[in-house]
Amino acid sequence: QTHGATLYMVLLAGWSALLSRLSGQGEVVIGSPVANRPRVELEGLIGFFVNTLALRTRVENSTTVAALLADIRETTLAAHEHQDLPFDRVVDAVQPSRTLGHAPIFQTLLVLDNTTDKPAAALPGMRVEALSIPHATTQFDISLSLTETQDGLSGAIEYASDLFDADTVARWSQWLERLLDGMAQSPDATVSSLALLDEDERSQLLQASAGSSTEQSPQTLVDLFESQVARTPDTVALRSGEAQLSYAQLEAA
Rank of each mutant, 00 (worst) to 15 (best):
124 P>E: 00
170 A>D: 05
72 I>D: 01
77 L>P: 11
42 L>I: 00
147 T>E: 03
107 Q>Y: 05
156 A>W: 14
76 T>F: 00
116 T>R: 15
117 D>Q: 15
159 Y>R: 10
79 A>H: 07
135 H>N: 09
58 R>W: 07
47 G>K: 14
55 L>F: 12
175 W>Y: 13
175 W>K: 02
113 D>I: 03
48 F>L: 15
114 N>Y: 00
172 W>S: 02
147 T>H: 06
34 V>G: 06
109 L>V: 09
64 T>N: 11
170 A>W: 03
142 I>A: 12
99 T>P: 05
85 L>F: 09
105 I>V: 15
143 S>M: 05
142 I>Q: 11
45 L>G: 04
143 S>P: 09
161 S>G: 12
90 V>K: 01
92 D>H: 11
148 E>M: 00
102 H>S: 14
74 E>V: 12
34 V>R: 08
35 A>F: 03
73 R>I: 01
61 N>E: 15
113 D>E: 12
151 D>C: 05
74 E>W: 00
38 P>M: 08
78 A>P: 02
115 T>S: 13
41 E>W: 11
146 L>R: 02
54 A>P: 07
131 L>F: 14
83 Q>D: 00
143 S>Y: 01
49 F>S: 06
39 R>P: 00
128 V>I: 12
105 I>R: 07
96 P>H: 06
88 D>W: 00
173 S>I: 00
128 V>C: 13
78 A>C: 03
158 E>V: 13
159 Y>L: 07
41 E>I: 08
156 A>G: 11
55 L>K: 08
61 N>T: 15
38 P>W: 10
152 G>L: 02
35 A>K: 07
96 P>W: 02
62 S>R: 15
150 Q>V: 08
41 E>K: 13
128 V>M: 12
132 S>M: 09
45 L>Q: 15
148 E>Y: 00
38 P>Q: 10
84 D>C: 03
167 D>R: 12
104 P>Y: 02
175 W>N: 01
83 Q>W: 01
44 G>V: 08
121 A>R: 09
88 D>Q: 09
85 L>V: 14
34 V>L: 06
137 T>W: 00
131 L>H: 15
47 G>S: 13
66 A>I: 05
93 A>I: 09
169 V>K: 07
80 H>E: 02
114 N>C: 01
112 L>Q: 02
171 R>Q: 11
160 A>G: 10
59 V>W: 05
141 D>V: 06
37 R>M: 06
39 R>N: 07
46 I>A: 14
103 A>W: 03
103 A>T: 12
145 S>Y: 00
64 T>C: 12
102 H>E: 10
61 N>F: 10
53 L>D: 03
146 L>I: 03
104 P>C: 05
76 T>Q: 04
80 H>I: 00
153 L>C: 04
145 S>D: 08
139 Q>Y: 04
66 A>Q: 13
49 F>Y: 14
165 D>T: 04
110 L>K: 11
71 D>K: 09
173 S>E: 05
87 F>A: 03
37 R>S: 08
74 E>P: 00
71 D>A: 15
103 A>S: 14
161 S>E: 11
151 D>T: 12
89 R>Y: 00
116 T>Y: 01
74 E>K: 10
56 R>L: 12
133 I>Y: 06
41 E>T: 12
48 F>S: 04
168 T>M: 12
170 A>R: 09
109 L>T: 05
170 A>Y: 04
36 N>G: 10
118 K>C: 10
133 I>V: 15
